[in-house]
Every structure is written in structure tokens, then in C-alpha cells.
Simulated assay, not measured.
Amino acid sequence: MFVIEGLIYKNILQISKMEIPAKTITCLVGESGAGKSTFLKMLNLMLSPDRGDIFFQDQHVKDIDPVQHRRKVVMLAQQPTIFPGAIRDNLNKGLAFAEKRLKEDDELSRALELVHLHKKLDEDAERLSGGEKQRLALARVLLMDPEVYLLDEPTSALDAETEELVMNRFISTLKEKGKTVVMITHSQKLAAKYGENIIKLEKRAGEQDE
């Protein structure tokens, strides 16, 4: 799905060759400052390397329209954006961006149930806790149904028990649909359980934070 060759970005990343296969769960691991979040942003065309090439589905990313790419390749930041308004509005915001049909309430509620977020659709999204906001964002990207999910520490605000409940169902759903997932995690347990392809990024000497 992704092929990376000779990539250099500042003093943060240096990748001679890397492949991320389609329809698999790839976990990016490594200490803080190793460039994991930076790398994810490059896959989403939010950043460009100083040198080297990134190919997506055999096409160089320089030849891809970034907006169209981000509708196929959706990134979820560690601290996801929560928009003013109700939970319903937040769930449909991603669909509006992707120019897809907005979902009816029953579909929205099923997405919340899948990520174990037991809230009403008309509740104020900005009043949710950090962990609840992460789950709301997971439900939002699930509804968008992209080809590729780029997840940056999607469970960092969840306790271990909730993390397992949420990710079991979330990852199982994506695998059933044949989706590609690239996930940053500091959780060795999470990487060992779900990572079909584990890539470790090493922090370079004198490297900046991610």
C-alpha cells in the first residue's frame, strides 16, 4: 500500500526502505522523539520529506491531490479535534468532509456502542472527558469508512480495561472490512496483540521531539 524509499526529514527521520502492506495492522513503536507522529503526517500528506520518495498504491504522493488522499487515508491525532455542538454533529463532521452521506441516528448510535461510548447524540461533545473524546473520534473515523486509518496513540487517555474493550471491537471491525491500519502505540500489549506488522523507529542522536 505504502512504499517509502530514501526518506530524510530534518534530523528526525531517516528511512532507507519501508513497505506498509495493504489490509494489515501495522504498529509503529519506539521511544518519544523517534519521529512516529512526523512519519504518520507524511503518509497523510501533511508534511513532505526533505529527500526521498513515498508511494501510495504505486503512485508517487507528489502526483496525488492531498484533499482526495485524505478522504481515502484518514488520520486521527492523539488529541483529536472536537467541534462545538452535539455528539451527533461531531460524528457527521467527518462524513461531511469526505463528501459522504450523513448517517441516521441509529447508525450513529451503533458507532458509539462499538467504541463503548454510552452517551446520547444530543449531548455536548465538548463536555466529554479526554478518554470519551478519543472514543468519539474513533467512532467518527469508523463512520467515514476510509481505505486507510492512521491512528496516533488512539487509546492514550483510556485505562487498560477500556482500551481492551474498545480496540477489540474496533480492530475486529476494520479487519472484517479489509482495511489498512497504521497505528502508533506506546503500549507493548497493544502492539503484540494487534500488530501484524511491527515497525520500530529509533531516535537519532540530537533528534528533536516529534
Results as ranks from 00 to 15, higher is better:
residue 1 M to T: 09
residue 1 M to G: 06
residue 1 M to A: 10
residue 2 F to E: 05
residue 13 L to N: 02
residue 14 Q to N: 09
residue 14 Q to C: 12
residue 14 Q to P: 07
residue 15 I to E: 04
residue 15 I to H: 06
residue 16 S to E: 15
residue 19 E to L: 01
residue 21 P to N: 06
residue 21 P to Q: 05
residue 22 A to P: 02
residue 24 T to R: 06
residue 25 I to K: 02
residue 26 T to P: 01
residue 26 T to V: 03
residue 27 C to E: 05
residue 28 L to E: 00
residue 28 L to C: 05
residue 28 L to V: 04
residue 29 V to P: 01
residue 32 S to M: 07
residue 33 G to S: 09
residue 35 G to N: 04
residue 36 K to S: 09
residue 36 K to N: 13
residue 37 S to W: 13
residue 37 S to M: 08
residue 41 K to T: 03
residue 43 L to S: 08
residue 44 N to M: 00
residue 49 P to R: 11
residue 50 D to N: 05
residue 50 D to C: 01
residue 51 R to E: 15
residue 54 I to V: 11
residue 57 Q to N: 08
residue 57 Q to E: 10
residue 60 H to M: 01
residue 63 D to K: 11
residue 70 R to E: 03
residue 71 R to A: 04
residue 73 V to E: 08
residue 74 V to L: 08
residue 77 A to R: 14
residue 79 Q to W: 10
residue 80 P to H: 13
residue 82 I to T: 13
residue 84 P to N: 11
residue 84 P to F: 06
residue 86 A to T: 15
residue 86 A to L: 14
residue 92 N to K: 04
residue 92 N to D: 09
residue 93 K to I: 14
residue 94 G to W: 01
residue 95 L to H: 00
residue 97 F to K: 02
residue 101 R to L: 11
residue 102 L to M: 11
residue 104 E to M: 12
residue 105 D to W: 03
residue 106 D to S: 10
residue 109 S to P: 06
residue 109 S to G: 09
residue 111 A to P: 04
residue 111 A to L: 01
residue 115 V to G: 08
residue 117 L to R: 00
residue 120 K to W: 12
residue 124 D to K: 13
residue 124 D to G: 07
residue 125 A to C: 08
residue 131 G to H: 04
residue 134 Q to C: 00
residue 134 Q to Y: 00
residue 135 R to P: 06
residue 135 R to M: 12
residue 136 L to E: 02
residue 138 L to H: 07
residue 140 R to I: 05
residue 140 R to S: 04
residue 141 V to I: 11
residue 141 V to N: 07
residue 149 Y to S: 04
residue 152 D to G: 03
residue 152 D to R: 09
residue 152 D to E: 09
residue 153 E to N: 12
residue 155 T to S: 10
residue 155 T to K: 02
residue 157 A to P: 08
residue 160 A to Q: 15
residue 161 E to L: 13
residue 162 T to C: 00
residue 163 E to T: 12
residue 163 E to I: 05
residue 164 E to C: 10
residue 165 L to N: 10
residue 168 N to Q: 10
residue 171 I to F: 12
residue 172 S to Q: 14
residue 173 T to Q: 12
residue 174 L to Q: 06
residue 176 E to H: 06
residue 181 V to I: 15
residue 184 I to H: 01
residue 188 Q to I: 07
residue 188 Q to K: 12
residue 189 K to A: 15
residue 189 K to C: 08
residue 190 L to M: 12
residue 190 L to C: 07
residue 192 A to Q: 14
residue 193 K to R: 13
residue 193 K to L: 12
residue 196 E to F: 03
residue 197 N to W: 05
residue 198 I to H: 03
residue 200 K to F: 06
residue 200 K to P: 01
residue 201 L to E: 03
residue 203 K to V: 04
residue 204 R to E: 02
residue 205 A to D: 14
residue 205 A to Q: 13
residue 206 G to I: 11
residue 206 G to H: 07
residue 209 D to M: 14
